[in-house]
Design a protein around this nucleic acid. Sequence first.
DNA 1: GTGGTCTAGACCACG
DNA 2: GTGGTCTAGACCACC
Lengths: 138, 138, 138, 138
Amino acid sequence: MAGFHMTVSTGSGTPIYRQITDQVRLGVATGVLAPGDALPSVRALAEQQVVNANTVAKAYAELVRDGVLESHHGKGFFVARKRHVYSRAERLRRFRQALDTFVHEAVCLDFTADEIRRAVNEKLADLDLQSKPAGVNV
Amino acid sequence: MAGFHMTVSTGSGTPIYRQITDQVRLGVATGVLAPGDALPSVRALAEQQVVNANTVAKAYAELVRDGVLESHHGKGFFVARKRHVYSRAERLRRFRQALDTFVHEAVCLDFTADEIRRAVNEKLADLDLQSKPAGVNV
Amino acid sequence: MAGFHMTVSTGSGTPIYRQITDQVRLGVATGVLAPGDALPSVRALAEQQVVNANTVAKAYAELVRDGVLESHHGKGFFVARKRHVYSRAERLRRFRQALDTFVHEAVCLDFTADEIRRAVNEKLADLDLQSKPAGVNV
Amino acid sequence: MAGFHMTVSTGSGTPIYRQITDQVRLGVATGVLAPGDALPSVRALAEQQVVNANTVAKAYAELVRDGVLESHHGKGFFVARKRHVYSRAERLRRFRQALDTFVHEAVCLDFTADEIRRAVNEKLADLDLQSKPAGVNV
DNA sequence: GTGGTCTAGACCACG
DNA sequence: GTGGTCTAGACCACC
């Protein structure tokens, strides 16, 4: 769990609970959070970010339902062992929707196809996804 | 206005008025809608898509506010002469945010860098953006 | 939507929001609720069952996340077109867990294998699942 | 007490104390644990499964309350002489509820009646219940 | 009118 | 100490 830190900003348009789920998901996807890692307790995170505990609980609950976290009653939340919850069709559906939204926005902002391609490539290089060997950081 | 057609789908998560503004913006950005082109009247579009006329009016109003359309009283709505509303910095900021959101989602869905790159390229090829000369009115 | 009615009982051990999701899910699975059918509005159901509106909203939200319902902002909740959200592995995992729980409970209550088999067969006959042709009741 | 072994898994959704009571109950119901058999001591089980001793004690206490175990002070816990705690009506009620829950879940996961029947039969074959003579002590 | 989010505070179950 | 559920009431966005 090297260097995982959460930041939520109120009034940014995206709901707080969404900011939390997104950051945890990204942490897990990129390997910053590994299976078995403990997350900040509901109350601790709520206090630290000055939000309501229910909001944090809602976010964590959604992550549990999606198989990203496990709740150990009385002990806290932990990153779950990776498993595929969604069907291939559902994954594609979600990916296509995200792609549409992005390209659409980029085009509306008058970026050219080349600029978009280049930016995507850079971003992907930054994340360094190519290997992602299972089990690292465990 | 060769071949501009609107489609809204209720229950897709994105609000109807947003679907309308998005499609108009995309049409303008891709050149399908050119300055001076007339848009379907509020009532016609509302009837055709089986949505509330207020919703269409709200969408058009937002586009007028953003300088995408012009309202000619008694005649209808027309595509405005192109002008850049956002500063270069703001455009970049929005683009980066959209890119982050997209890559983030894709990574969380376990798509590889290659798959993402390929999908982006295909999408861009579909849109066929090159016709718009870079640098006009910037 | 012939004859769909909800009943929740407080203090029954199972949380209210769970009772709601379960009943809707069952209604959809058995065909009592067909794609496109409207559900009682959040506030209406809350009032009718004398529970808090947030509790109903939470239940509906979960069903939306699982692809059972669709939320049409300003209009209400509707039964979604059927789609497979879970992977085959995930479906099996959930089924096996449910089976274990059931058989376990039955055995602990001292029912014999024969009694269990017979009861299951009767229950399945009651539900009349064998055909379930898609599109009926739409 | 031929081959009775306990396993608890944290984070499986069901609370630890419940997993313990369930496994003991199942052992008794299937005959793996016979009246008079000694159970692992509270501290031994706690250490072995890496759980809190209070949790084990709580589980055993519940089983004593329900007449499944007997506590012999200073010697440990032993399987009690079998007696039926629940009335016939109550047993049926609980069984029916368990059956409903299971079939309901299976149907919602889109398993067919045949698949359900087959899975139940396999599960029952695994448990091998026939050894327990019907009607004893009822 | 609808749903969506957040807050505050209560009470219970688990370890 | 942890999480899980429910309530009450607020404010916003959409139609």
